[in-house]
Amino acid sequence: MEERTSESHRMDRRRELGEFLRQRRTRIDPEQWGLVIRKRRRSTGLRREEVADLAGVSTTWYTWLEQGRDINVSEQVLLAVGRVLLLDHHELDYLFTLTGRVAPSDTGLRTELPETVDVVMRQLDPLPAAVYNPRLDILAFNEGYRWLMGMDLYPRPDHNALLLRFTNKDWQARIDPDMDTIATTVANFRAAYAQHVGEPAWKDLIGRLEGIALFDELWARHDVEPRTGLVKKYVHPEAGPLTFDSIPLWISKSSDVRITVYTPADAASKDALHSTVRVG
């Protein structure tokens, strides 16, 4: 009797898992992932095959997961599915619970910013400012940063400075090739990685970058550097060459999340910024 009850509970949980995944899948606009849909669809959201492709799993495997079949799921794959479905940390915990696993303590998706951070970001406009965690996820940004880096061009799930630098041509085109700080950025990332070795969210990001020749070369060096302010040069599609001093400001002594503010390093950059960025 107890065995039948236990099996019934497992079936109920798998059924709930399938319904949860289907519901979350239908709420995702394909354009959030940069997918171009040319024909009108009967149903909203992502298709199963699109979720599978974005998460790096087979369509058959993901279909089985949605159907509630009794299959083995790894922590890393669940995180990938959660990333594609844009799950917040409460929803991610729920996903792990339904699959009978315990969510990792640090998923890379759990940073919740104080409300005062948003106030500070708005007050800094038009100076570009962005909030980063150690993994270089872009957690928030203001209008100045939106203008500088063209943030509307990138799907929200790809808002990671390291990922965009290696994989997105629009992001790459805004960085002055004569003063590219990518080697320093990778060394900063490597230094932060020491406290997160083996964590699935970090492994997922590194896995997405592996196979890119320049990343593989820089990653193999094992260079480490502390994060400091740098002079950054950009090529804006409308304003042309721009130079900024980047200043990292940690939110608190115990926090590893920082606000980086970009201040114009010359008169031309200052004039372009103040004449172009609209605040309010």
Rank of each mutant, 00 (worst) to 15 (best):
L127Y: 10
R135C: 03
P177H: 05
K203N: 12
P157C: 10
G229T: 09
D178W: 06
T167K: 13
R135K: 10
H236W: 06
V186M: 12
F215P: 01
G144I: 02
E199L: 10
A213T: 10
A129R: 00
F244H: 10
T181A: 12
D118Q: 07
A183N: 06
Q123N: 14
Y145G: 03
L205Q: 07
T228N: 14
Y154N: 04
D158E: 09
L127G: 00
P155T: 08
A192Q: 15
A191I: 06
P226S: 13
R165S: 14
T116H: 13
T185Q: 12
V257Y: 04
R174L: 14
G229N: 10
T243L: 04
D137T: 09
K232H: 11
A192C: 14
P157H: 04
H196A: 14
W147N: 00
L230F: 06
E217G: 03
W219N: 01
F166E: 01
D176H: 01
T167L: 14
G144N: 07
S252C: 07
R174T: 13
R122P: 02
A130W: 00
L136Q: 08
Y132Q: 06
L162I: 15
M151G: 05
A201F: 03
L163A: 13
N142L: 08
Y132R: 03
F141I: 04
R190M: 15
I247S: 11
P134L: 11
F215C: 06
I182V: 15
W202A: 00
Q172D: 06
G211Q: 05
M179Q: 06
D204M: 13
V119Y: 08
F141C: 04
P157I: 08
S252W: 04
G211K: 05
R122C: 09
L205Y: 02
R156G: 03
D204I: 13
V224T: 15
S246V: 08
R174N: 13
S246A: 15
A140Q: 09
R190Y: 11
T228D: 13
F189T: 05
R122A: 15
P226C: 04
F166A: 13
V235R: 01
G240K: 03
T185M: 15
N160Y: 02
I212P: 03
N160F: 02
W171Q: 08
W171I: 11
A192N: 15
H236D: 05
V119G: 04
L162E: 01
V197H: 05
S246T: 15
P237V: 06
G144M: 05
L214C: 03
E143K: 14
L136F: 15
P237H: 07
N168T: 03
A173L: 08
R146I: 01
T228A: 14
A194W: 07
W171D: 10
W171C: 13
V117D: 02
T167Q: 13
Y154V: 05
G144Y: 00
A187L: 12
R208C: 11
S254M: 04
W202P: 01
V224D: 00
V131S: 01
G198Y: 08
M121F: 09
A201R: 01
K233T: 05
L124Q: 10
W250E: 12
